[in-house]
């Protein structure tokens, strides 16, 4: 094994640092710009001010958008988890004709650009006389990607779990329901949390479908930000983005702490 003190070790360290700068640099630019005292987006920032944060928090559109996004992402995460896990259980526990094809079909929306889905869905809903209202429409659309995401995570998790453990629990006196809650669920829990988090984050960050299919009244935060970036492009956008980055960071830390517990 190469020691980190050897010349090669230093090269590796340097490359790791460059990698991080490449990945995180754009985020740092946004965060830095949000503190700028200028009336336009500036980097490097000039002066230091928190007034764009005040402006962001005072603007009802952002706060409303945030709660719309939260509600949307939560619904998408829960529904994706239920549908995706049920499908994954069926695909791993029962062999039936066409199950391999079905698995490929289930995963296919993941490879389509969101814009293609958005356009297709817009056409579909506009031709549909009983089209549901904006929020429901958006939830259904996001499920097209959320369900395959959950499936993608849960398929390998379920394939790794020994199906005999549930039988072992029943053999030791646990009813089928008890066996599920005492053994199956706890074993699957880390996978379920990761899957739900992925679907949640996808829905929260999604722009294209939200733009095409969302209602104006219930615009998710991404749509509000998109509009603001086109209209005014002042540091308020940077401030909102920075807050979102902070939120994501907190969630990641929490998830890691749970995983390492």
């Amino acid at each position: 094994m190469t020691s980190l003190r050897s010349p090669l070790g230093w090269v590796l360290r340097g490359m790791a640092v460059l990698g991080f700068i490449y990945l995180l640099g754009p985020l740092l630019v946004i965060v830095a710009a949000s503190f700028s005292d200028t009336g336009y987006l500036a980097f490097p920032p000039q002066g230091f001010s928190l007034r764009w944060y005040h402006a962001a928090l005072a603007d009802a559109r952002y706060l409303t958008g945030f709660f719309v996004s939260l509600r949307l992402a939560a619904m998408v995460a829960v529904l994706s988890l239920i549908i995706g896990t049920a499908a994954a259980v069926a695909l791993t526990r029962f062999a039936f004709p066409g199950s391999v094809l079905l698995e490929a079909l289930f995963l296919s929306p993941l490879v389509l650009p969101a814009l293609v889905l958005a356009v297709a869905l817009t056409l579909f809903f506009s031709a549909n006389p009983i089209a549901p209202p904006g929020m429901t429409r958006l939830v259904i659309s996001h499920l097209l990607v959320g369900v395959p995401m959950v499936l993608r995570v849960m398929l390998p998790v379920l394939r790794r779990v020994d199906p005999a453990i549930e039988e072992a629990a029943r053999n030791l006196g646990a009813s089928p329901t008890k066996a599920f809650f005492l053994v199956t669920l706890p074993v699957l829990r880390p996978g379920l949390i990761a899957a739900a988090a992925l679907a949640f984050i996808f829905s929260f960050d999604e722009v294209e479908m939200a733009l095409f299919l969302g209602s104006v009244r219930d615009a998710p935060l991404t749509v509000v930000l998109y509009g603001a970036a086109q209209m005014q492009m002042d540091p308020t956008v940077a401030a909102v983005s920075s807050l979102l980055i902070l939120l994501a960071l907190l969630l990641m830390v929490a998830q890691q702490m749970y995983a390492n517990r």
């Binding site: 779990v161 020994d162 005999a164 453990i165 039988e167 072992a168 629990a169 053994v183 706890p186 074993v187």
Partner: peptide, 9 residues
């Protein structure tokens, strides 16, 4: 069980 089927958690 042949696989032992121990509860991994």
């Amino acid at each position: 069980f042949q696989s032992y089927a121990l509860f991994p958690h």
